[in-house]
């Protein structure tokens, strides 16, 4: 149940009874007062307070549900831990056979991440960004990309010509740019249009 109307001899009492019924707490609901009610005198002219209590959509819960439902249909049982920071939801997935959920170079994980973000935003009031990770994949990938950046920068310097990397999503390109930012012998740029945008490393003349 997501919403209910409750009555009580005061607004507080009406809200409390609704919270008990919805099995939730006050910070997780929106309260609309339909009738303030009246105390009356010696039981005459008293009117009950009426409130409408609506459970706020829990976006973290939705994130977990979406991931678990999709994974279940792929035959995978996973557990999901979420953290929320303002408009960012970070979800860490773990379970058996997680490699199937990550896919080659994380393409399945990235696809699921995008779909989860779209699903969450379909019911969110403000634009949320959703990041999925699976058993430390993002961190491992970050290390791989840093090493790749160094290697390709070296290559650009040796050959004295620009080196183009394979297409990557924006957050992966960002890791490459950041890794080479302090290297004064090369400069980096991105070329092409998403989803085929890729980093270009050039030796500084």
């Amino acid at each position: 149940m997501k919403q209910m109307t409750a009555t009580g001899s005061s607004v507080k009492e009406a809200v409390d009874s609704a919270l008990a019924e919805l099995r939730t707490t006050e910070d997780r609901v929106d309260v609309e007062i339909l009738d303030e009610g009246r105390k009356g005198f010696l039981g005459f002219g008293a009117k009950p307070s009426i409130v409408k209590v609506t459970k706020k959509k829990d976006l973290e819960e939705e994130t977990v549900a979406y991931i678990q439902n999709v994974a279940a249909q792929m035959g995978l049982t996973v557990s999901v831990d979420t953290k929320r920071k303002n408009r960012e939801i970070y979800a860490d997935i773990s379970g058996e056979d997680i490699a199937r959920l990550i896919g080659k170079r994380g393409q399945t994980l990235n696809a699921l991440q995008y779909l989860t973000q779209m699903a969450v935003n379909n019911s969110a009031e403000q634009l949320m960004s959703v990041t999925l990770d699976a058993e430390g994949y993002r961190e491992r990938r970050r290390e791989t990309l840093k090493q790749l950046a160094e290697r390709k920068a070296e290559q650009a310097l040796v050959r004295q010509q620009q080196v183009k990397l394979e297409p990557m999503p924006s957050y992966e390109r960002k890791i490459i740019h950041a890794a080479l930012q302090r290297n004064r012998r090369v400069e980096t740029d991105s070329a092409g249009k998403d989803p085929n945008r890729s980093v270009v490393i050039r030796p500084v003349q």
């Binding site: 199937r100 393409q107 399945t108 990235n110 779909l115």
Partner: peptide
């Protein structure tokens, strides 16, 4: 979105 749906389906 369509591309992401297909990626998950192929997986």
């Amino acid at each position: 979105v369509a591309k992401s749906i297909r990626t998950v389906v192929y997986a």
